[in-house]
Amino acid sequence: MNYKVTVDGKEIEYGALVEKSRFSEKEWSAIYAEIVKQNQPEVFESKKADTDYIDVFGALIALEERYKALLELLPQDQFSYVGTHPKWVADAVAENTLNKEDTMLDVSDLIGRCETLEELKNELTDYFELEGL
């Protein structure tokens, strides 16, 4: 979910996958207040005078939303649900991410030892696990 707030005449949009996050303390406070207002209106009404409470509660909701959004981006079904330990997610991402330098060295090696284009094609298909595509 994205949240829009206006601080000192400047409209700010924030959401779980928003990359720009260099907001001032005042802007973060307005964002957190909006997050709490939309997600827990009864809490917001009872605690809106306690800005520290609202800021912390809003930050927690924002963190949970970011975590859920990032999990949804993972291709592995077994890791794409809330409750998955972050270490398991990090391990799965690392295991399923190609290291550019290692890949370049491996492909360079394949090019050097393959004598025909067909042999190189087969080796690259195996290397990148492209069978059946």
Rank of each mutant, 00 (worst) to 15 (best):
His85Met: 10
Cys114Asp: 08
Gln78Tyr: 11
Lys87Val: 11
Ala94Thr: 09
Glu45Ser: 11
Leu63His: 10
Arg66Asn: 06
Ala69Tyr: 03
Gln76Leu: 13
Ser46Thr: 14
Glu34Leu: 07
Ser108Asp: 08
Gly58Trp: 03
Gln38Glu: 14
Phe79Gln: 07
Glu129Cys: 09
Glu115Lys: 15
Ala16Phe: 01
Leu124Pro: 01
Phe57Leu: 13
Lys48Asp: 01
Ile12Gly: 00
Gln40Trp: 14
Leu105Asp: 12
Glu42Asp: 15
Gln78Trp: 10
Thr125Val: 15
Gly112Phe: 05
Val18Asp: 04
Leu74Thr: 12
Ser24Phe: 06
Asp52Asn: 05
Leu17Arg: 06
Ala49Thr: 03
Ala90Gln: 08
Glu129His: 13
Leu70Tyr: 05
Tyr32Trp: 10
Ala30His: 01
Asp106Glu: 13
Leu63Thr: 13
Glu34His: 07
Asp55Phe: 00
Ile61Val: 12
Thr6Gly: 00
Pro86Leu: 04
Ile54Ala: 01
Glu11Lys: 03
Gln78Arg: 13
Lys100Asn: 09
Lys100His: 05
Glu42Gly: 03
Ile35Ala: 13
Gly112Lys: 12
Ser21Tyr: 04
Gly58Tyr: 02
Val43Arg: 00
Pro75Asn: 13
Arg22Asp: 14
Gly132Ala: 07
Ser21Thr: 15
Asn2Thr: 08
Met104Cys: 04
Asn99Met: 09
Gly9Asp: 00
Lys26Glu: 14
Val43Ile: 12
Asp77Met: 10
Glu129Ile: 10
Leu73Ala: 04
Lys10Asp: 03
Ser46Leu: 09
Asn2Phe: 04
Val82Cys: 07
Gln38Met: 09
Leu130Asn: 01
Lys121Ser: 15
Leu71Met: 05
Glu19Gln: 15
Thr84Glu: 07
Leu124Lys: 01
Val107Gln: 00
Asp91Arg: 10
Arg22Tyr: 10
Asp126Ser: 15
Lys47Thr: 02
Val56Cys: 05
Thr84His: 02
Tyr3Met: 06
Lys37Ile: 11
Met1Phe: 06
